[in-house]
């Protein structure tokens, strides 16, 4: 579904991603972990072209990405993205946040959109917040609406960039539950997260990124209980200490 080969990305003179290759199969859930500054966000942002890559190749669902604006827009419609800071549109209701993409990008009719919105709000458990503005919602509710906004595009894959790290601890669970349901439904997912319990339950594969490279990868079991690399071990220790 997502094929990255030899991605190189720099900001100015600083190379952030060194020849990163990664392949995510349809329906697979991949969790990326790694220390701050490792390039995890940059990698996700490259996948849906929020950043241009210097070299390498990105293939989404069999289609090789170019710089063509139309193609990029189409790709973005197919790959949902959820940000750490939610980035909901504060001047629009939950309903309109969700309806925007289907209206303008998918060009759906109104009746169809109402149904899409209701179905998705039901899925994330926020049907009663349909007419609320983001400012009237808790962080956890906002993030669930942000997930709903991405899902309304009926994406083939979802990218999550630390979706719970801006949340108060008591609100993390409700967002992870929505993500868990998504994984169960067979959604292809790439998640940057340090929620180890979630990774253990849901991930098919855990990838450890350090200094712009994939250090090692494996099943959650292997990575968490029997990591090969010393840097993985020390990183996992630091996470455990924090929790």
């Amino acid at each position: 579904m997502i094929e990255l080969s030899n991605i190189v990305k720099s900001f100015g003179k600083q190379t952030i991603l060194h020849n990163v290759s990664l392949s995510v199969k349809k329906g697979e859930v991949v969790v990326i972990i790694g220390p701050s500054g490792a390039g995890k966000s940059t990698l996700l942002r490259c996948i849906n072209k929020l950043e241009d890559i210097d070299s390498g190749e990105i293939v989404i669902d069999g289609e090789r990405l170019t710089r063509d604006k139309k193609q990029i827009r189409k790709l973005r419609a197919e790959v949902g993205m959820v940000f750490q800071q939610f980035n909901l549109f504060p001047h629009l209701t939950a309903r309109d946040n969700i309806a925007l993409g289907p209206t303008y990008t998918l060009k759906q009719g109104k009746a169809n959109i109402d149904k899409i919105v209701d179905d998705i709000l039901f899925k994330v458990g926020l049907l009663e917040k349909k007419m609320s503005y983001p400012g009237q919602l808790s962080g956890g509710q906002q993030q669930r609406i942000a997930i709903a906004r991405a899902l309304a595009m009926q994406p083939k894959a979802m990218l999550f960039d630390e979706p719970t790290s801006a949340l108060d601890p008591e609100l993390v669970g409700e967002v992870l539950n929505v993500m868990r349901d998504l994984a169960k439904d067979g959604m292809t997912m790439v998640c940057v997260t340090h929620e180890m319990k979630f990774a253990r339950e849901v991930a098919d594969r855990v990838i450890v990124m350090v200094d712009g490279r994939i250090l090692e990868e494996g099943t959650p079991e292997t990575i968490f209980t029997n990591p090969r690399e010393e840097r993985t071990q020390s990183f996992l220790r630091s996470i455990l200490q924090k929790n």
Partner: peptide, 22 residues
Amino acid sequence: SNGQREAAMTIGLTYSQMMRKI
């Protein structure tokens, strides 16, 4: 904030839709 622009882009809006709606 740039996050607003990026969120608009990730749902496939064109530049002019992003400007007018967001």
